[in-house]
Design a protein around this nucleic acid. Sequence first.
DNA 1: GATCGGGTCAGTGTTACTTCA
DNA 2: GATGAAGTAACACTGACCCGA
Length: 299
Amino acid sequence: MLENQDLGLSLSLSFPENKTTNSLQLNLFSSLASTTSPSSLSHFNLFQRNSWTDSIPSSDRNLETCRTFLKGIDVNRIPTITDTEEEEGGVSSPNSTISSLSGNKRNEREINCEEELDCCRGISDEEDGETCRKKLRLTKDQSAVLEESFKEHNTLNPKQKQALAKRLGLRPRQVEVWFQNRRARTKLKQTEVDCEFLKRCCENLTEENRRLQKEVQELRALKLSPQFYMQMTPPTTLTMCPSCERVAGPPTPSPSGPTNVDPRAHQMGLAQQQRPMPFNLWATSPVPHRPINALNPRS
DNA sequence: GATCGGGTCAGTGTTACTTCA
DNA sequence: GATGAAGTAACACTGACCCGA
């Protein structure tokens, strides 16, 4: 049986560019609560609180009030004909929020509450106290079944809704509402995960941009340095030596001499031609990820 | 008319913090 | 000063409702 804490509300995202976070599996389990402070997870409400059935509610302060108004009403219980036939006493609806409403909405809700009352009246006092709750909370089993059903299909057709409601002892409307809420909240969580992912992407790109800008600055500094300017070959242009008609390319470190002759070095004479190049600034590989000393490139 | 998504309300539980004996 | 119980504010969860598409 599925535990309520493990509702399988897991979302995943792929991080194709980042091996370390290649697959972010976000398990929205309550176990996280033991290692993570709630405030640090404010954007990811990962805590799956225990069901009200797990513990006696600490809201005993409401007990007397509830006993007065909700005597013996089990809002989890599917209404029966006998329920509706019995007791016409003034019992407040479990879902009643009349006191905070006004105007037409209040009237509508009053009507709804009356309808609800018609369904819920007449339950014995046996469950007094523990069932004192104004709002339905699904049991673990009910939640588990709904979760299982949601995994299979996140929408229900009328037949499925009816069957599920009958199986769980709930009204079809309750099942429908549960699925609507579940879809909405799943989507919200997914949006939060997506947002976090994009935020991380943005941070990475910003950092990469900063790094590249720095490299550009370093390269410009080197290029504008007159001491080395003449030793550089253009980055993208291929030049041909007019005398030997050989295409100048990246110099090779071969001690036997360069196979590709820099025309400028060629024209500068043998002495300069044989002078070793400190490094190739225009190498195809990205700029070396080691600091370049522009003032002393040979070092 | 039924259904869905989005927004919202309200009841409830949990946690962290404060106060007090 | 240390300690545990009680109170409380803040927050999160969740069932339910409303409204527009």
